[in-house]
Design a protein around this nucleic acid. Structure first.
Ligand SMILES: [Mn+2]
Ligand SMILES: [Mn+2]
Ligand SMILES: [Zn+2]
Ligand SMILES: [Zn+2]
Lengths: 151, 151
DNA sequence: GCGCAAACGCAACCTTGTTGCATTTAAATG
DNA sequence: CATTTAAATGCAACAAGGTTGCGTTTGCGC
């Protein structure tokens, strides 16, 4: 099990990056891997946390910004802004993953939880409005944060 | 034309603020006025620019942030994030209570439109989760932005 | 008018993201 | 494999947008 050499996922990411026509670097492979493994779009800070320990940053902060933008530029990742105004990145192809169900967003920890229920059909829109996406979000405190309220 | 005293619009804004149950201050009146006069949702910087000259700031930067949030909190304004991740504010229509209806959020201009439909009852949550707020948002392009696509 | 909670102004701070520049490296070439 | 070079990286400095803490002022109920 020890991943002494490149894992299968890392090889797949490397191939994607090569096919996209840009240089294959350790940073890009690890970041694209992280995006593929994630169940939700990740912020810069979240990618950073998944890559290296706080003591061993794995990639420089600025380099990570540039890696993320380069993956977007070559079409391997998507960039979108979240409700707090922070950019989030997802591996291309996984973007429609969360279109058909309800989400619970914890206002304490920022965590997103996918619920089983699917959103109801959208109401009729005024003339000229064009619908792109339906977001049915519940906001509150998740189980983890609720339990450690008083510590 | 010289607005030596309070204008008609300022009086209307003051009334709205009073009716919302919060203190009527010069800053709040001027900001709500600016939001009503604007054709598009305004960022903090844009409100600031409309209020005072660069030499005479009219309201403090931090106070303006707090005024904008207070108008949102009492339902007189709506807050949304634009594609750059910057918050934009718009005057709310007749409704002051936005928890009980669906919103359409224009991803082009950041505009928020209150729809008539009310959100469906939330699905059952996993054990330990505490619900605080339900947001049923439709995202897309508003009529105004749709029509000036090619122009 | 008086009193007080609410709002304000100011300084400091934080988070997210960008720019400039010197150094390193992927990978093309021979 | 060695050479070469454009692209990628690391680090420092910077910038915009937004928040926190705290002492002072003010709207407004009495
Ligand atoms: Mn989901
Ligand atoms: Mn920002
Ligand atoms: Zn619009
Ligand atoms: Zn509304």
């Amino acid at each position: 099990m020890a991943p002494a050499l490149a894992s299968v996922e890392a090889e797949a990411s490397a191939d994607l990056i090569r096919a996209a026509g840009v240089k294959v670097t350790r940073g890009r492979v690890r970041v694209l891997d992280a995006l593929h493994a994630a169940r939700q779009p990740l912020s810069h800070a979240e990618v950073e946390a998944r890559l290296g320990d706080a003591s061993d940053p794995a990639v420089d902060r600025v380099t990570l910004y540039r890696i993320l933008d380069s993956l977007v530029a070559c079409g391997l990742a998507l960039k979108a802004v979240d409700t707090r105004g922070v950019f989030r990145f997802s591996a291309a192809g996984a973007q429609r993953q969360h279109a058909n169900h309800v989400h619970f967003r914890c206002t304490d920890c920022g965590g997103v939880f996918c619920l089983k229920a699917e959103p109801p059909p959208p109401p009729r829109l005024p003339r000229g409005f064009r619908l792109n996406e339906v977001a049915f979000d519940l906001r509150g405190t998740c189980a983890g944060c609720s339990s450690r309220v008083g510590v």
